[in-house]
Write a protein that binds this DNA or RNA. Structure first.
Length: 197
DNA sequence: GACCAGATTGTCT
DNA sequence: GACAATCTGGTCA
């Protein structure tokens, strides 16, 4: 397992979104322990020509993290009860991010079950709000460093099969009311762990 | 399975 | 005051 370096995030959000598929998201929680999942679904939000991006109308208190350096967590609250976990990409002053939409649960499944109150494995991480709850990611971890903080991404450097997913599908994003035409949602073809077909 | 309404509150105009 | 990068549990088939 190899920690993704800062340079991984210093690229355009669409490229990072594709390359994160098949990587491993790890959260080391001091209280509950470690949880880990494999990224199977992502969405990119761009700084240019993307009305659905939070930063499309300039910097605000909520989205200011997107304007900072890449490799930082952007976590926000929405719909009055859910959180979404994003990765800031590209470069300082260029507000782009990748939303993590679904994971295949791998480690600490018992912890995820307890946090989610669901026993079906497919109900643990098959959606952006669900995986935040299952992984125990908290709003306080907004702006934390993905290279040195409690939330990190790894890739499997050993197995050639795990170097990348077999096939990536690009479709329109989910849950937005503008920019629906852009093919910026990516998932691993045939994965049973994604949020929707 | 598909479709739909309701929950619930921070953020921005 | 409107709306949100969602989830859940209900109905109907």
């Amino acid at each position: 397992m190899e920690l993704l370096p800062r340079s991984f995030y210093s690229r355009g959000a669409a490229q990072v979104a594709r390359d994160l598929l098949g990587c491993y998201l790890v959260h080391d929680c001091p209280e509950a322990g470690r949880t880990m999942g494999r990224v199977v679904e992502t969405e990119a939000y761009l700084s240019q020509g993307d009305p659905a991006c939070h930063a499309a109308r300039g910097m605000t208190r909520r989205n200011r993290v997107m304007f900072g350096p890449p490799g930082i967590a952007y976590i926000y609250f929405t719909y009055g009860m859910h959180y979404c976990f994003n990765v800031v990409t590209t470069g300082e002053g260029i507000p782009e991010a990748v939303l993590i939409r679904a994971l295949e649960p791998l480690e600490g499944v018992d912890i995820m079950v307890a946090r989610r109150g669901k026993t079906k494995l497919k109900e643990l991480c098959s959606g952006p709000g669900k995986l935040v709850q299952a992984m125990g990611i908290k709003l306080e971890e907004n702006e934390s460093d993905l290279v040195s903080g409690p939330i990190r991404f790894y890739r499997d450097s050993a197995s050639p099969e795990a170097k990348g997913p077999r096939e990536i599908v690009a479709t329109s994003r989910i849950g937005i009311s503008s920019g629906e035409d852009l093919p910026l949602r990516f998932y691993i073809a045939g994965s049973p762990w994604i949020s929707k077909r």
